[in-house]
Computed example of a mutant assay.
Amino acid sequence: MRRRHHFHIDHAGHSVSATVQTGHTAVVEVLVDGKETGYATTHADHPVTVHVELPTEPPTPVSVRATARPEPACVFESPSAAPQPMAPRPY
């Protein structure tokens, strides 16, 4: 059965959200400021990293590391800060 789990973090004035859809093939979507900027799939319980950019001048490369099992979780990674867990959202 598929379930969708939502995560969020604010970084450098930008909103970064991730949705992890669990199932046989996990799907990870990353939105920056409300626009889909990254997408990845992974099988079973393998973690996946989605690389995206923040719309700064010049663009700032960041990534979201997601795991679907045993409990979905996302970690935000930026070259200017230590890795930070993204907060789960109930919607």
Rank of each mutant, 00 (worst) to 15 (best):
R2Q: 13
E29N: 11
G23V: 11
L54S: 04
I9R: 14
A82Q: 15
Q21A: 14
P58T: 09
T19D: 06
A68S: 15
V50G: 03
S63I: 01
E53H: 13
V20K: 03
T67C: 08
E29H: 12
P47L: 08
A68K: 06
R89D: 06
H43K: 14
C74F: 07
H51I: 04
G34R: 11
H14M: 01
D33F: 12
Q84A: 15
E71N: 07
D33S: 08
S15V: 11
H8E: 11
H51M: 01
P79H: 09
A18T: 14
F7W: 07
G34K: 09
P61G: 01
H51E: 08
F7V: 09
E57G: 01
A40H: 02
A66F: 05
T42C: 11
R4E: 12
R2F: 08
V75F: 02
S15G: 01
P70D: 10
D33L: 08
A18P: 09
F7H: 11
E57T: 15
P58N: 05
Q21Y: 00
S15Q: 14
T25K: 12
E53A: 09
Q21S: 15
V27I: 14
T60I: 09
A87K: 14
V20Q: 03
V75A: 02
C74I: 04
H46W: 02
A44D: 12
A44H: 12
P72M: 07
V32F: 05
S63N: 06
H8Q: 09
T42N: 06
A82P: 02
H8R: 14
